[in-house]
Structures are given as structure tokens and as C-alpha cells.
């Protein structure tokens, strides 16, 4: 995914990172977990809570803002983690296999949400995944790395529509892109 907004003001961190697991603070509810980065960057309380509520809305967790991490499902926790990364309005969002631990249905749903978030917020997203399906669904530009050396084997702009929803996964165009990524991976194995 490519896109960048370079403007920077208070409470903006240029880079945000989402781990493989949610890594939330278990003693804080959703709202205060999402507000954490702003708190550490010393954004004033009213402002940071407002920004946090807005971001929680974006990931569809408005009803769960008062819940604690141990009251959330794995997918919800990951969305909180995503909201925490986005609350600083980063221009670059790094995601390292964020949905790898989730079941397939949850994962596909979150992929869709992430696409929507990206269209709405317009940051650059670098997304690392081992799933060719996920890569094809999410990416504007896909880079395939070889297994051991991390050499670039394939670097392609995907020919898929900007609006991507579930049914896209069943189209021949999508299957073609997955196939191309898969073939590149195979080449990398050799």
C-alpha cells in the first residue's frame, strides 16, 4: 500500500508498529490502551481521549471502549492494537504478520477493514505476511523476498481494483495475482 502524508504536528508519530500479537496493557481498558501513545507523547488529556474515541470508532470497537483486554476476542484485541498504532496518525504503519494468530474468517474480515482504514487515513502501510492470499488482497505493490537471504525476487504493482471487498477473492483476476505471488515464492525456494 502506498500513500503518504508528511505533515507532522503534536501527537503525531511518523512511524507506528503493530506486533504479531496485540500486546495490550492488561490493566487498561480499550480506550486507555489506545490513548497510550498520545499519553506518552504528552498530548493533553481531553485531546487524546477524543482522538482515541475517534480511532476506536474507525476500527469498529466503539461499544467495547470500556472493556479490558481479557474480555475481548483475539480479533478484537488485534483491532485495539491497530487502533493504538493509528491514533498518532502515522505516515508510515508497519505491520509484522499482525493477523497470523487469528482464524481465517476473522483474518479476512480484518484484511477488509485494514483496506478501508488505509483508504480513509491515507498512510503508507508496510505489511509483512506469509499468506499469498492476504498479500494479494491487501497490496497495491507486492514484494516477494527469498527464504534465506531476503533477496527481492518479485516486485509488482497489483492489477486489482482500489475498492476491495470479500467477493474479490473469488474473481479470476485475484486468483491470477495470488498465482503470480506463489510462483515467485517457489522461485525463491530454489
Amino acid at each position: 500500500m502506498l500513500n503518504a502524508d508528511e505533515s507532522e504536528k503534536a501527537g503525531q508519530s511518523p512511524i507506528a508498529y503493530v506486533f504479531q500479537d496485540a500486546h495490550l496493557l492488561p490493566w487498561r481498558n480499550v480506550l486507555n490502551n489506545v490513548a497510550l501513545p498520545l499519553e506518552l507523547m504528552r498530548v493533553e488529556r481531553g485531546e487524546r481521549l477524543e482522538a482515541s474515541r475517534r480511532t476506536i470508532d474507525l476500527v469498529g470497537l466503539a461499544d467495547a471502549a470500556d472493556r479490558y483486554p481479557n474480555q475481548l476476542s483475539g480479533g478484537m484485541r488485534m483491532r485495539v492494537s491497530l487502533a493504538r498504532a493509528m491514533v498518532t496518525e502515522p505516515s508510515l504503519l508497519l505491520l509484522d504478520e499482525p493477523f497470523a494468530a487469528l482464524d481465517e474468517i476473522t483474518r479476512e474480515r480484518l484484511d477488509e477493514q485494514l483496506r478501508q482504514l488505509w483508504s480513509a487515513a491515507g498512510m503508507t502501510v508496510v505489511f509483512v505476511t506469509h499468506s499469498t492470499n492476504e498479500a494479494a488482497f491487501l497490496a497495491q505493490r507486492a514484494i516477494v523476498l527469498s527464504k534465506r537471504s531476503g533477496r527481492i525476487i518479485e516486485d509488482r504493482m497489483l492489477e486489482l481494483p482500489a475498492q476491495r471487498t470479500g467477493p474479490l477473492r473469488a474473481t479470476p483476476g485475484f486468483a491470477g495475482e495470488v498465482r503470480a505471488l506463489y510462483d515467485a515464492l517457489e522461485r525463491g525456494e530454489r
Partner: peptide, 14 residues
């Protein structure tokens, strides 16, 4: 303390 959370705090300049 969870090292990932320590990294997170460092990332935001805590």
C-alpha cells in the same frame, strides 16, 4: 516486563 511493550514505550519516546 513484556519486552514488546518496552519497545512500544521506547518507540513513543516515553
Amino acid at each position: 516486563t513484556d519486552p514488546a511493550l518496552r519497545d512500544l514505550f521506547r518507540l513513543y519516546g516515553a
